[in-house]
Amino acid sequence: MNIVVCVKYVPDAQSERGFDASDNTTDRENVDGLLSELDEYAVEEALKLVEAGEGEVTVLTIGPEQAADAVKKALQMGADKGVHVSDAAISGSDAPATSLVLAEAIRKIGGADLVLTGMASTDGSMSVVPAMLAERLGLPQVTFASELTVDGDTVTIRRDGDAASETITASLPALVSVTDQINEPRYPSFKGIMAAKKKPVERWSLADLGIDSSQVGLGAAWTKVEDVTKRPPRQQGTIVPDEGDGGARLAEFLASQKFI
């Protein structure tokens, strides 16, 4: 089974994150980035499926120069090869444009029996790219899988909701997004680090994918971020000395903040 895993290079949540002042997009150049943690679950699931049977795991990303790190991490974990789509015109793309580039890249890869993604990126957190990508590729979309099994040409997943757990099947090829409950992503090993250096990584531009630059980027985005204001720093807490009426004052405070 050949699997393509879509991964994203995101700003490290531990570092100081910000926005590009000129166009209000996420600043991806001046921050430390890494493979989105939520995508590690998709990589791990792909590796487990291929290890249990046969096939290849191709990891696909779109992003600036540094995004190659996300591909490298997935290769260190054990993926077989990488594809990195990078083009200055892609900067500022919204979810529909991102899904367009991913879809064309997957076609150029030669399709896949299974396309895996994380449940959301840890920066944009929209969760919509998997659905859009499935639509563009004409694949069944099965999202938020907490468990995944493949039997012949059928993929079965469990989706845990607030009220019930659903079991859903789809025929392959299909697209599945996975949650952080599905597995425990492995750490790369020393051998994995050394082996990753020899694994092939393709670099494609928009032209390689036959996409016109007017179809992507900030200009083609369906929505626009008009303004960005950093959240003010958290206010100092209030200390309520208990002078016999502590309980009542605490309740008053909680009610005033609409906690109760």
Binding site: Q76, Y187, P188, F190, I193, M194
Partner: peptide, 15 residues
């Protein structure tokens, strides 16, 4: 290569 390996062990140790 050594620094890349260091970051792997650090992630593991911290995690």
């Amino acid at each position: 290569d050594h620094e890349e390996f260091r970051s792997l062990v650090r992630d593991f140790a911290v995690g």
